[in-house]
Design a protein around this nucleic acid. Structure first.
Lengths: 221, 221
DNA sequence: AACTACATTTTTGTATACAATATTTGAAAA
DNA sequence: TTTTCAAATATTGTATACAAAAATGTAGTT
């Protein structure tokens, strides 16, 4: 699942394997490494100037997170999904994100709000300028700001992880200038809902309707 | 995060590291290995009759999933949480489980329903008999049946993972006969909600209220 | 030219080796 | 007796070695 709180530790030097891990995550989420592509342990070892051991450890961890998949005795590959699987992954991601949004709406905190709005301002700016690369970064920051604003690092970690997993598949969606604008505007709708006066009440109402009984029931177990 | 579909592969022999992984998961979720406890690589290697290499790989994976934590240069420990962290973890787990329940309610499928009800029958039986060990198994099966019934292995994997993580902390809650009964009865409330006539409509209504706008907004990104 | 059978080469998974850092032990000083 | 410091020991992280399996290449047959 999810590492949480890897930061916040004092002056943690990135320890070879973490560096490799992050480099690979970066390349996977930008799509530089294509889904289905085989990863060469020896090649990576050479490239990072280390032996296969730490490379394998990094790959193992990413496989445990679902970003990579390991086929028995045949190596490790960038995860690749059928259309059906992809649909399920997006469904799961949307549920998690909706859960995050609900938590944010309930917790409403001014500092977090200004962070989110700053991120959104950057999204609007880059979208208008048609700065695709810039928008990808700003969009990422926007989503991360929402996850952080939940105040719950565990659900935030899950959400981030889904974002990483779906990165290669979302990347190609932002082709045209219009795509960027539309995306940034949909952020705005989201924010209006989260920060509307009656959002907290609405959210509570929504929870109490059906979810609350689920939650009550599940709490016991 | 989450391995998905490790089963369903034809006659996969459990490959040393998977065996170690599952043995450890078992011991952690039963609480046999206490939170905070240090895991001895050499000891485990001896115990499983292998070298440290596959042991370390198994530990790495579990650390990536959050079941274990790795402290730099000091080894690997069973994850241990402060009260605040524990609260956050449970909050996250409840959100995920509620999401699962909502998906099940929407998808309502008769085969899945009979599986869930069979699991619940077993819960009731073992609870009445005061069979604690039996109840723990039946309860687990009940939750897993719900996760499976979502038809979404990805969110199911997340839910399962939280269940594993919280295992050691939930375990001690089922001390008395009354605890078992109460838990089994709360299952019943949950089932009534999921399977009620208007559940699907209610669920859709709930979604459309606020969540739908979130989901719409997020879908674009 | 396409297919099969076998030998060669790579690659994976595991074991062992070793340097760097933590932990423990034990003796000397307060 | 308790504290302090240093040597001894154990453990971690990484490198290398090696057996087993998969991928690749090469003939030989049709």
């Amino acid at each position: 699942m999810a590492k949480v709180l890897t930061s916040s530790k004092s002056a943690n030097k990135p320890s070879t394997v973490r560096k490799i891990q992050e480099a690979l995550i970066e390349e996977i989420s930008t799509g530089e490494l294509a889904p289905g592509q085989h990863l060469d342990e020896n090649g990576l070892a050479m490239r990072f100037g280390v032996s296969r051991t730490p490379v394998r450890e990094a790959l193992s961890r990413l496989a445990a997170q679902g970003v990579l998949v390991q086929k028995d005795r045949r190596g490790i590959f960038v995860a690749e999904y059928s259309l059906e699987e992809l649909g399920q992954i997006f469904e799961a991601m949307h549920e998690i994100e909706a859960a995050c949004a609900r938590i944010v709406a309930q917790r409403l905190n001014l500092l977090a709000r200004s962070e989110i709005e700053a991120a959104q301002a950057e999204c609007l700016r880059t979208a208008e300028e048609g700065d695709r690369k810039g928008y990808l970064l700003a969009n990422e920051a926007f989503h991360q700001a929402i996850y952080r604003a939940t105040g719950n690092p565990y659900i935030a970690a899950i959400a981030s992880e889904f974002r990483r997993r779906t990165g290669p598949f979302r990347a190609k969606k932002f082709e045209s200038h219009e795509d960027l604008i539309a995306s940034a505007q949909s952020h705005q709708v989201l924010l209006n809902d989260i920060f509307s006066e009656d959002s907290a009440t609405a959210s509570k109402g929504m929870r109490s309707h059906m979810a609350e009984s689920f939650i009550q029931a599940l709490k016991m177990n």
